[in-house]
Design a protein around this nucleic acid. Structure first.
Length: 564
RNA sequence: GGGCCGGUAGCUCAGUUCGGCAGAGCGUCUGGCUUUUAACCAGACGGUCGCGCGUUCAAAUCGCGUCCGGCCCGCCA
């Protein structure tokens, strides 16, 4: 526990630990800390319970076809609370349970392959999945034939995403917790107190009757989860069962009729008991969950924890679901987005920022307006460094920013996202830098690492512009676009071509464009538009003169003369 | 039918815990930078805080009612 092996900065002294705790106490006393960042308020609540260390923060989902961004609430919301507690000097263990002893109940329409790319059911062995309806995810082969099981495949995806966002989380398999006996005593306890269990649960679920047994064995014959327990032998720690049909929605998963005996490790608790059982065996102090649990599983779980398991439930936190492009996340409708996809478009810290925002608000992730999210992040970052005159943003940034970035470095350069997208018009690195320099984002004092990081945004913003095919999807046209100009515009273009051919630099070209337009009696705007059409096949573009100054002179001259 | 959460400027959101002048960024418009693009600078426009009633000297904030959206109250997670 205190061997320091996972302690990043090693020799932290007890004195410093003390002061961290004291500082936290001061923060808690005036309340400023908690008001400004939800994770700090949650941390206060956990702290108030004087938890044993390590403090355990849990999340978890049942494996499904795709690990989408919504699932990531289970990891990111806990991460921020863990980070605040660590800052206060506590040892924190963040775990994520893959609830993988759950049976596959229906076929997913979409799956994510090992790289996180989404594929349809038709691209995998769907028959093998269909035959395994009702079987625990850990006993179903990986449809991609790579991992040990369907469950392992799914867990690996989530773990890979957590790594991409640099969140240290320990993945736990529910099945393993059953098989290695971690759950066994709780299962025995629940079966021993089956009357109380039934009584408590029946307040939440009307279907619970006298025959209800809170344990579902796995059929020794067909391997499916069964629901019919006929006898419980507490001394032998076994149950007798019949493998009967299971109803899922309006579908029926057929049982094989086998009658057998199962140990308490060969089955699972129903979810309503399994969740509190996890709290007990893992010693969970905090758990965020989606609003779907808020009025169902949570109240019953809390009750079961106190009155059946006789433990104190963790500090809860409900998070709102977010929508994608205004629509509910839905894998069957195909309205999903993954961490991998998002990281093609955003830097990891921007995505982390998204999850640092108030969990109580339903939030829409509008891909077409990602520039707005990135602008918000940039402002949030500047606020941390005291450059924003807005108390509430600054207070939030002061608390949350250190947990959003991997490293606090004040002299970072952030190109505005739309400008970064515009720079994506060229793949020429030097040209990108030159244009950023022209606009004042980079100067001679900018360190090389900052330039490097700034340019990382260009590829992402470019990917966004292409994906959305929006106004920032500029690309230098290799071939002459179809154009049709007035005579005086053509004359002006020829004059400008001569000016460029004479070897003038970008700044001069920019100035000359105005002169040329005036000389030929055309609106400056029309002349610029002509230039944009020639080079981008679009009526808008970057600051043109300086841009042309960066390109190959022969190419520019030929294009201005409409020669290719 | 019962319950929970949300609804604040065109957009994205602070502010609601604990009542004290309705806020920010973006967008838009106007002007500026010898310069109509990305950006930058100055300014302006923009509000029935979903709606109604109540409490109060004072309500986005508290209470009651109501509308809209999501979720839960079967199974499952």
């Amino acid at each position: 526990m205190s061997d320091g092996s996972d302690d990043a900065d090693g020799g932290e002294s007890d004195v410093e630990q003390m002061s961290a705790h004291e500082a936290a106490a001061v923060d808690g006393a005036d309340g400023a800390d908690a008001r400004d960042f939800w994770a700090a308020a949650v941390a206060d609540e956990i702290e108030a319970r004087n938890p044993d260390e390590p403090i355990v923060i849990k999340g978890g989902v049942s494996p499904s076809g795709v690990a989408h961004l919504g699932n990531f609430n289970e990891i990111m919301r806990g991460y921020f609370v863990a980070a605040v507690l660590r800052e206060r000097g506590y040892e924190v263990r963040q775990v994520f349970t893959s609830d993988d002893r759950d049976p596959l109940r229906k076929l997913p329409r979409k799956l994510a392959d090992v790289d996180g790319d989404i594929v349809g059911l038709g691209d995998v062995d769907a028959g093998a999945l269909g035959r395994n309806l009702g079987t625990p995810y850990t006993d179903i082969p990986d449809p991609f034939g790579e991992s040990e099981s369907y469950a392992a495949h799914f867990a690996a995806l989530l773990k890979a995403d957590a790594d991409r966002l640099d969140v240290p989380v320990e993945m736990l398999s529910n099945t393993e917790l059953y098989e290695d006996g971690t759950f066994e005593d709780v299962v025995a306890h629940v079966l021993e107190h089956a009357d109380e269990a039934r009584e408590v649960l029946s307040a939440y679920q009307s279907k619970v009757d006298e025959d209800y047994v809170p344990f579902n064995p796995i059929c020794g014959e067909c391997g499916k989860i069964t629901e019919t327990v006929t006898e419980v032998d507490l001394d032998a720690r076994t149950v007798e069962y019949v493998c009967t049909d299971m109803t899922v929605g309006d579908e029926t998963i057929e049982g094989c009729g086998h009658e057998g005996t199962a140990t308490l490790r060969e089955g699972k608790l129903p979810w309503r008991f399994e969740w509190p059982a996890q709290w007990q065996v893992l010693g969970v102090d905090f758990e965020p969950f989606g609003k779907d649990h808020a009025e169902g599983s949570w109240p019953s779980g809390e009750d079961i924890a106190r009155n059946v398991l006789e433990i104190e439930p963790p500090v809860p936190m409900v998070y709102e679901w977010f929508t994608l492009n205004g629509e509910a996340l839905s894998s069957s409708q195909g309205n999903i987005v993954t961490v991998v996809e998002m990281l093609d478009l955003l830097e990891p810290e921007v995505l982390r920022y998204f999850f640092a925002l108030n969990p109580r608000k339903a939030r829409d992730l509008d891909i077409s307006r990602l520039d707005q999210l990135v602008d918000d992040f940039d402002r949030f970052e500047r606020a941390y460094f005291g450059d924003v005159d807005d108390e509430s943003v600054t207070a939030f940034a002061e608390r949350a920013y250190p947990f959003v970035v991997d490293e606090i470095r004040e002299d970072r350069v952030r190109l505005p996202y739309t400008f970064a997208a515009v720079l994506g018009m060229t793949d020429d690195r030097d040209l990108r830098i030159e244009m950023a320099r022209n606009e004042g984002y980079i100067d001679d004092d900018t360190p090389e690492w900052a330039i490097e990081e700034a340019l990382e945004r260009v590829d992402r913003a470019r990917a966004w512009a292409v994906r959305e095919d929006n106004a920032y999807n500029y690309r230098i046209q290799d071939a002459l676009p179809e154009v049709d100009f007035d005579e005086n515009v053509e004359a002006a273009l020829d004059e400008l071509a001569d000016f460029v051919a004479a070897g003038n630099d970008g700044e001069a070209i920019q100035g000359e464009m105005y002169e040329t337009a005036r000389r030929n009696d055309i609106e400056v705007g029309d002349f610029f538009e002509a230039g944009y059409l020639l080079f981008f096949d679009q009526p808008q573009g970057p600051r043109l003169g300086e841009f042309l100054g960066e390109l190959d002179t022969e190419f520019v001259v030929a294009r201005l003369r409409r020669d290719g």
